[in-house]
Design a protein around this nucleic acid. Structure first.
Lengths: 334, 334
DNA sequence: TCACAAATTGTAACCGTTTACAGAGTGCGC
DNA sequence: GCGCACTCTGTAAACGGTTACAATTTGTGA
């Protein structure tokens, strides 16, 4: 079942069949109709490898993430796949697993397969590898990395805005001792959140004593330990750099018998799937992963790739659930 | 940079280069060495599309899952990817999202791309689609579906054994009223677990009154409600059909102030990532997803595909954490 | 009605491999 | 020394599309 059979049945040349499939405008409607009929009758599907070989376009996109096991990524991957297949692209997902070697492998796999674009949704990416992709002429889009360049777009998340939303929410609830659980400072995104905490807290005339800051490593266990360290400082609220550490903090509080939110409020960051199922449900700053995926696709899609890439900024959204509440105890009615 | 340049540099024909790359045995060691040197010098990577076109082998495997957002799947996907790339295969992951239309799309995408094998790790798959894949001559491997057939292998998980491990663990802990939170009975895997509960409970002379059985829908919310319904029946232990519903049950107990495991024991099923981070950490029956992935790859790998597929059985493993304990209250030492 | 331009379709080269087949070289037995 | 069987290598035809270019048809204005 190849293009020749279709051509024969439609009584045209293979060129016309190809043109009908790819750019219907260059073909007379009557001819096109005959060709489409033949295609349907024969249940013809063009061979993608032949197509890629001769056109040079693979119609495959690469997606590089850290680790599909990290709950931040599944939503991102799913949304990216959805938009890609809507546009008849296939996607190859690769996990760096935070290892430089593995990352190199990811890049070379993608380059070998001649993907038409690469979305790099992990922050660990050596500049050398970015250059390698640029030399290969592949459009790329990153999340929170450097500035755009040649065929190189960037999506930036307004983390600082997210932290502001969180703190202002707490301030509105009359909190005055707001602690912060940091993420790993080698991650730019974690660093931005921490600095924003410092800045916004000062703007609101809150203490940012170093005793109100703990390291949560962006993990549940880290958040647990951090919360334990924070407890003696009597904060009335805690902002965590991500949901995982907020969940760890929640566990620590539960174990210590501290009630949330009546005695202490907690806000996470990310809005991973699980956050709406914690007890109490976690108030958090949502990173709009579906939107990021859509933008990433758009950045890579051939009709919008220009020599000089663009930069997009996406806003976070405060999702208020049940882990935050007023710092002022309701007085018993006399 | 193509095979001709390599051939020229090594002073051989393109055929020899190709042979060196694909089956080193047909080439003199000395010649092969020259070719490899040229390949290295020129940093040559064969064009996979040309290769696929002419050989008919795409070196791509398809993986069909329900939904990457379901915490059961990330581990499976990751392990599958790992073993595939070790063998220089690429993998395309597709999500059915539990929708028949989307499932059809998944299958046709994979078939169009001429994948060399398909691992179907979701239970919702119409027989018609299986036939379609078989007609296309693609080896397939399923999880818990029917019996193997032509180029069709199956991996079966010993769910019944898992349920037995769970119940015997509880019986060993002197529990006598063991409730069960069921999954959706249209899922074969959930049905097997439920039937095994009934059987094993009877074998151990435990009540299996229908009031000790609740529907948890395999979700957190479902497990929450199910536990609430079960509570008045005073079970001393609960086995849930999956971890998600066990976590929901845990939340219900926490909210009602029932202590786990001192007042009530809970066992989940699956061992999703999150289970080791619940409070208390969840005792559960692990489904060995990495092993399943390895077997799935082996079932598909060309050197082991025979006309008639195989069937493999994998055992579950009871992971004892902190949500289960003795049903007998320790007497205060006098 | 005719010349010429524009629109549509056909011909065939090409994309970069693999592989059937043919040819060259080597070693061995007689 | 010669023929034969093997082993190794080269030639060239696929694989199934796309696309530059040529050929044909159609439409237009004088």
């Amino acid at each position: 079942m190849d293009i020749k059979k279709v051509a024969a049945r439609a009584k045209v040349s293979t060129a016309t069949v190809s043109r009908t499939i790819n750019s219907s405008d260059a073909v007379t409607p009557a001819t096109a109709a005959r060709v489409w009929a033949a295609i349907r009758d024969l249940n013809y599907h063009p061979n993608p490898h032949a197509r890629s070989l001769s056109s040079g376009k693979s119609h495959i996109l690469g997606l590089i993430i850290s680790d599909i096991t990290n709950p931040f990524f599944p939503d991102l991957v799913k949304a990216f796949e959805t938009v890609a297949i809507e546009h008849h692209y296939e996607v190859i997902v690769t996990n760096t697993e935070y290892s430089p070697d593995r990352t190199r492998l990811c890049v070379s796999r993608l380059l070998n397969r001649k993907v038409e674009g690469i979305a790099i949704m992990t922050s660990e990416m050596e500049p050398g590898l970015i250059e390698q992709m640029q030399r290969a002429g592949v459009p790329i889009v990153t999340l929170d990395t450097g500035l755009p360049g040649r065929k190189f777009s960037n999506i930036r998340v307004d983390y600082a805005g997210g932290v502001r939303q969180a703190i202002q929410h707490l301030v509105g609830l009359h909190h005055e001792r707001i602690a912060f659980i940091r993420g790993p400072q080698r991650l730019k995104s974690a660093q931005i959140r921490y600095e924003a905490y410092l800045r916004v807290a000062k703007q609101n005339a809150l203490t940012t004593s170093s005793s109100l800051i703990a390291d949560g490593e962006h993990t549940i266990d880290g958040g647990f330990t951090a919360m334990l360290n924070l407890l003696p400082q009597k904060p009335t609220a805690v902002v965590a750099s991500n949901d995982l550490s907020a969940i760890g903090a929640l566990h620590a509080l539960q174990q210590k018998g501290v009630r949330v939110p009546s005695e202490l409020s907690i806000i996470g960051f990310d809005d991973i799937n699980f956050s709406k199922h914690t007890l109490p449900e976690l108030t958090t700053v949502r990173i709009p992963r579906a939107e990021i995926s859509r933008l990433a696709f758009e950045a890579l899609s051939s009709n919008s790739v220009s020599e000089h890439g663009k930069e997009w900024t996406v806003a976070t959204e405060l999702v208020i659930r049940r882990s935050t509440g007023s710092s002022i105890r309701p007085r018993p009615t006399v």
